[in-house]
Design a protein around this nucleic acid. Structure first.
Lengths: 187, 187
DNA sequence: AAGAGTTAGTTGGTCGGCCAAGTAGCTCGA
DNA sequence: TCGAGCTACTTGGCCGACCAACTAACTCTT
């Protein structure tokens, strides 16, 4: 699959410090991706900690600052997260005083969420923090390279979204079959 | 929903479906990165589930298959994870029967870990699964583009590692100062 | 109007991941 | 020798994230 083993290009793959197991050679890019993402998240966590936020929460707040009060389902859609995840995150944000939740008069099962004033004060800090992190992460990359990276990531995202949607559609019916298919070797 | 958007090349940045909040414009690439990584991890989880593994565990197993019995500290170093994370992961892997843990005779505080036979049987499955996932994720990317992506990710990883190391070194002494520095505006 | 089906949120449980704090064991210097 | 310090690992607690299962409410059909 990767004929790249030999020649000059292999050097790009021979990365910083991580000695990757041979069994992972089937997915070098995915491996790098997870790794980098974890580092990025950890770095974000470190910065966010000074504001009393946990990574992920700032995204929720951003949407609230952006759009004002929103229904929880809207947030779920925007963030692409599991409903239960958002529920719990909002409970914590509420308890931290960053967010207020009230019933939607128009739909008695829905919940409206809005940022409190205390939450609003975080806006600048979070914005600054994001640019800081961006600079830290992508230092040494030219704008063109960043654009390139962004483009590539976008295409990967499209792929993964498509996969996910596909599995949702036809995998739902008979999960046992799909389980069997992966383990017993469709190929 | 995506390609149809239309005209320009700037469209690569204007991604698939995620309407990102303006507050996140300070970190578009980082944002895309987290997003993609989450999708990737979720996809991996879906595939791994058929094998009774959770994402992350397969990496541990890979290292064990690769190197044979290893000390826990070695795994921690290789994976770049927190010791406590590895401890708990191994406890679960042991309970699942994929792994065996025994005291190191040479160092009574250390623990040796090795894959069981049941674990060994997973090797092929996991390897196949990784290549499957890799193909799903990066379909439509030429080998050159994958190499490019890998290279960019490698550079980002280097940046983040350096940052982390730097913070470890001089941030440890006075965490209050570093907290102040991020919140009160270095810029 | 009544029931089927869908949507909105919640709860409970499990994992990976982190930090903080603590214990056992090794090491090295005074 | 013996205590200071480091290393290896564990425990507890917290979060994001998932799935599964459930309730409440809206909707749409019949």
């Amino acid at each position: 699959m990767d004929a790249s083993n030999g020649p000059a290009t292999a050097d790009a793959a021979r990365h910083s410090h991580a000695e990757l197991p041979a069994a992972a050679r089937g997915g070098p890019v995915g491996h790098a991706l997870s790794r980098v993402a974890r580092l990025h998240r950890t770095a974000a966590a470190g910065l966010l900690r000074g504001l009393g936020l946990y990574p992920g929460q700032e995204l929720v707040m951003m949407h609230l600052w952006e759009r004002g009060p929103a229904r929880q389902s809207e947030l779920i859609r925007l963030l692409g997260l599991d409903p239960s995840t958002v529920t719990k995150m909002l409970q914590r944000l509420e308890q931290a005083g960053h967010v207020r939740r009230l019933p939607d008069p128009a739909d008695r099962r829905a919940v409206l969420v809005e940022a409190t004033e205390s939450g609003a004060r975080l806006l600048d800090e979070v914005a600054r923090l994001w640019t800081t992190l961006e600079e830290e992460s992508f230092a040494g990359l030219t704008p063109a390279e960043r654009e390139q990276l962004l483009g590539l990531l976008g295409r990967v995202e499209a792929n993964l979204c498509a996969s996910a949607a596909r599995e949702d559609r036809d995998g739902q019916a008979d999960s046992a079959a799909s389980r069997r298919s992966t383990s017993s070797g469709v190929l």
